[in-house]
Design a protein around this nucleic acid. Structure first.
Lengths: 219, 219
DNA sequence: GCAAAAAGATTCGTAGACAATCTTACAACT
DNA sequence: AGTTGTAAGATTGTCTACGAATCTTTTTGC
């Protein structure tokens, strides 16, 4: 049973940080767009202190870039950057998948399958938001299941930086069956406790996602 | 030839950040120690703004931990954390080494050997500082040589978090010959362009370092 | 037309104030 | 004595205002 109290992010800058992260990931701020302090203060209804501190945190995460005395702007990901992002993501997610397969138990495999089914159901409805949410849930399970909090942290950071591309990658309906098959392969390999297969399945999945995203990017 | 002007980190908070990072990595602030704003302001001779923003950045890097309304303190790395840190470091550095082997050219191999020789020379003199510096230079070459800036960023972050342990790992003189042999093996594999061997050599090196650090940690 | 100077905008950094929260010390009660 | 409740102190969280430094744009002078 869960007794932990819902610890609301008790600080304002925490909320600001979250809101900004959301806005950037969702594409509300376009890459390269400058983020002017005063505007953010007015829009969010908070003081400079909170905004600036939140920006520093996002800067460290790579979501925004700051040029001294010019201010922050939403990070641009060049095609070259995207290649590197996906390469690293593949490496980390393959490791995560492998570790999941190593430590898997009945319960975990069941929950993973449930998430996969939820994703498939979301695909059937066609709701973009539901698809993103369930797929995110799947990745989250993979990350936490690997038992390494630093992997979780880094992968989350990568996902955030990629998310702008990820939305587009979901926009190809003819790609969905393949995507589902890949994810199912991951879950199957993990349940079987086959480390090598799980790693390979994750690697392949990310590689395909990478191809789609990069192709989409050349517009 | 290098025409880049020594761009002094034109912002105060940048300097503060650097100084604090240094102080923490060097062990000047002990793990768990609280970092009181006012004290830092006085010690560094800067205002609260600069200190606070620098702290936010270090927090995102994992060097400090902040509890709302209690303030920041130097991050503690439990033995469990150390295991995870080294596991991830091994994964990333193996990848970096492998990529170096893949893209290696005459020039890179030469520079790498030079760094290795510098490290060996430093070991002969016995100067702790020189050893740390040359070894850091070696890792830096490995990171930049892999051609993935995100790998560089993450590995740098990991190194910083580990550095407190790394100092101790260097304090075992009888371990040095082995360490030198491992590093040389890495350089050799890279020059040969043998990807698998380079990965394996890196993995083994980090694993050994991990064992030493963890053993040292149980005191 | 073009370089230099001025003006405007924005960030960088400080100081001071006040509220919210945590910590500690002390008093009161059973 | 031990626990509870309250008050005082310390520290962080946040806002505002101000001036300096720096980047950008416009104007001026030739």
């Amino acid at each position: 049973m869960q007794l932990q109290i819902q610890k609301s992010r008790a600080t304002l800058r925490g909320l600001v940080e979250e809101k900004l992260r959301e806005a950037i990931s969702a594409g509300l701020f376009k890459p390269g767009q400058r983020l002017v302090e005063r505007e953010l203060c007015e829009t969010l209804g908070v003081g400079r202190t909170s905004v600036r501190e939140a920006l520093r945190q996002l800067e460290a995460e790579g979501l925004i870039e700051t040029v001294p005395h010019k201010g922050p702007s939403v990070a641009r990901v060049s095609p070259e950057d995207a290649v590197q992002l996906y390469a690293l993501r593949g490496l980390l997610e393959a490791y995560a998948g492998g570790q999941c397969a190593r430590f898997v138990d009945e319960d975990f495999a069941d929950r993973l399958d449930a998430t996969v089914n939820a994703f498939i159901a979301a695909c059937d409805t066609g709701s973009r938001q539901a698809m993103v949410e369930t797929k995110t849930a799947f990745y989250e399970q993979l990350m936490t299941g690997c038992g390494n909090k630093y992997v979780t942290k880094f992968l989350t950071s990568l996902h955030n930086q990629i998310s702008a591309l990820r939305f587009t990658s979901m926009s190809q309906p003819e790609r969905l069956p393949q995507s589902i098959a890949e994810i199912r392969a991951i879950a199957t390999a993990i349940r079987a406790g086959d480390v090598a297969a799980a790693e390979e399945a994750c690697r392949r999945h990310i590689e395909n996602a990478s191809k789609v995203a990069l192709a989409q990017m050349r517009d």
